[in-house]
Design a protein around this nucleic acid. Structure first.
Lengths: 258, 258
DNA sequence: GTTGACCTTGACCTTAGGTCAAGGTGCACG
DNA sequence: CGTGCACCTTGACCTAAGGTCAAGGTCAAC
C-alpha cells in the first residue's frame, strides 16, 4: 500500500485512462515506474507529478512529441514554444471556421453545390419547359464548370442567361435535347446543326470567349470537358455538337478544342 | 485523347493529389473509371463531376465516410446532415479555442503550471530564505495538489500563506528541511518532531481540514500523496513527518491517512 | 475454489491521406 | 533504336492520440 498506486489508481487520480498512461510510457513522456513482485507498475508522487505536468500540456493542445523538450526547457523557451503551439492552434481553428462557413453556405441557400444565381438559371430552365433530365445534366455541367474553370464561371452563367432570353434559341435547344433519342445518323441532326450554327453566327455574343479565359492553365481542355459533359452517354448529342462546331469552324470561328 | 484524362490530369483539374483520388476510389466515394489498354485509369466528365462533388464536401469538413450517403440523399436529408456536421465542427472549434486559452494562461502569467497566487507563495518562500531545492519541492507539491485535490487547492494555499506569517513556524520548517541530510536515526529528528507538533497543536488553524474535502473521491489518499511528495527520496524527512503525525494522533488529532 | 475486478502484453483500428519501393508505359531526343 | 524522363500501376508502411479486443496472470472476497 505504501509502495505506490497501481496504474488504474494513478490514471483515475490524474484523470486519464490507463491506456493513456501506457501510451505516455511508450513515448517516453513519463518514465516507467518500478514494478512490484507481480509485475504491476507502482506509481509514487514523482510519477504522478510528471503525469500531471504532461497531461496539463497535452490537454492544452501541445503535441505529445514536443512535451518532453518543453518540460526540460527553461522558462524562456517554455513560453516561446507555447506561443508557437498557440499560433498553430489558431491556424487550425481558422481553417475549421472557414470549413464551417462553407458548410453553412452549402446547407442553406446553395442547392446541391451551386450558388443562388446558378440555381435560378436552372429553375428558369424548368419553367421554360425543359425536362428534368436536361435540367439535371445542365446542373452537373455547372458544378463541373464552377470547379474546373472558376475564373469564367460567372460569364458562363451570363451567357446562359442571355441565351434563355431568345425564344428561338430555346426552341432549337429543346429540339437538340430531343435528338438524344434519335439515331446518331438521323438526317434531322444535320438539319438541326445547321439551324443552331446559323443562330449562333447571328448572335455571336453567345459564343464570345470570356476575358481571363487563357489565364487558366489547360483552359481549352477544361472548357471542353464542361461543354461535352455526358456526351459519352449521348452519342446523338455528341454528333450534333460535332456538326455545329464544324459549321462554326467553317465560318472561321475558333472553338476551344480538347 | 478523346477517351479521357489520366489520373494525374484529373487530379490536377480538380485540385487534389493523385493519392487523394485513389483514396476516394478505395473508399468507394468515386467509382473506378475504365482502364485503357495499358491499365491506366481514364477519367471522363462524369467521374470528374463526382470527384468535384466529393471534394467540395470533403473540403467543407464533411467526414469522407458520410459523403456517399450525403450525395445519394434527397435535399432535405442533405441539408439536415450538413447541419449535423456543422454542429460537430463547431464543437471541435470550441474545444480548440478552450485549449488555446489554457495555453495562453500557461505561457503568460502562469509560471510552470501554477496560478499567480501559488507563484507568489513560492516567491515568498525564496524571500524568507528557503533554498531553491525546498522551493522546487514545494512547487511540485503545489502542482500535484492542484491536479489531485483541486477542490481544496485554494484553502491549501491559504493555510500555506498563513504558516509563513509565523516566524517561529518558518524557522522550524527550515530546520526540518535541513534534516534531509541527517541520518534518519539522528535524535535531533525526534526533538524537531516534538517542537513541530507542539507548534501545530498551538496553532490548530494550520491543521484544519478544509470544507468540501470529503466530496473528493479518495480524498485521503490523494491528500496523502501531496503531503508526502518526494519523501521516498528523503528518508529523514519521511521519519520526521511520521513522528509529527504520531504526536498529533497521540493528542487526539486525526490526520488524513493513506 | 471460484468469481469479478484488476493487471500484463500485443496486435489491430481510427482520419485522410503521404511516402517509399519496385516495376510497367509513353513520348521525345540523339 | 536505345535511352532518359515523366507518368502510371500496386502494395506496404507511416502519421496523432489513443481505443478496442484478446489471451492470460493476480488479487481480494465470498
Amino acid at each position: 500500500m505504501a509502495d505506490g498506486l497501481t496504474i488504474g489508481q494513478a490514471a483515475a487520480f490524474v484523470g486519464v485512462t490507463i491506456k493513456t498512461v501506457r501510451h505516455y510510457h511508450r513515448l517516453g513522456l513519463v518514465a516507467e515506474p518500478e514494478r512490484d513482485s507481480s509485475g504491476y507498475r507502482r506509481y509514487r508522487s514523482a510519477s504522478l507529478l510528471r503525469l500531471v505536468q504532461v497531461r496539463t500540456l497535452a490537454e492544452a493542445g501541445v503535441p505529445l512529441a514536443e512535451i518532453t523538450d518543453l518540460l526540460d526547457a527553461g522558462p524562456e523557451r517554455f513560453a516561446a514554444t507555447l506561443d508557437d503551439v498557440r499560433r498553430q492552434l489558431t491556424e487550425r481553428i481558422e481553417n475549421l471556421i472557414a470549413s464551417r462557413d462553407t458548410l453553412h453556405r452549402l446547407a442553406h441557400g446553395d442547392r446541391a453545390l451551386l450558388p443562388d444565381r446558378a440555381c435560378a438559371v436552372l429553375d428558369r430552365l424548368a419553367d421554360l419547359g425543359f425536362g428534368p433530365d436536361y435540367v439535371a445534366t445542365q446542373r452537373e455541367a455547372l458544378v463541373l464548370a464552377r470547379a474546373l474553370v472558376p475564373t469564367i464561371f460567372d460569364s458562363f452563367l451570363t451567357r446562359l442567361e442571355h441565351s434563355l432570353d431568345d425564344p428561338e434559341f430555346v426552341e432549337l435547344t429543346k429540339r437538340g435535347w430531343e435528338a438524344r433519342s434519335w439515331d446518331p445518323d438521323d438526317p434531322r441532326i444535320d438539319e438541326l446543326a445547321s439551324a443552331l450554327a446559323d443562330k449562333l453566327l447571328a448572335n455571336r455574343e453567345l459564343l464570345a470567349t470570356p476575358a481571363g479565359f487563357q489565364r487558366q492553365p489547360d483552359a481549352a481542355a477544361r472548357y471542353g470537358l464542361v461543354n461535352h459533359h455526358r456526351e459519352d452517354q449521348l452519342p446523338s448529342i455528341a454528333r450534333l455538337n460535332v456538326l455545329v462546331e464544324a459549321h462554326l469552324r467553317a465560318a472561321g470561328i475558333g472553338i476551344p478544342h480538347q
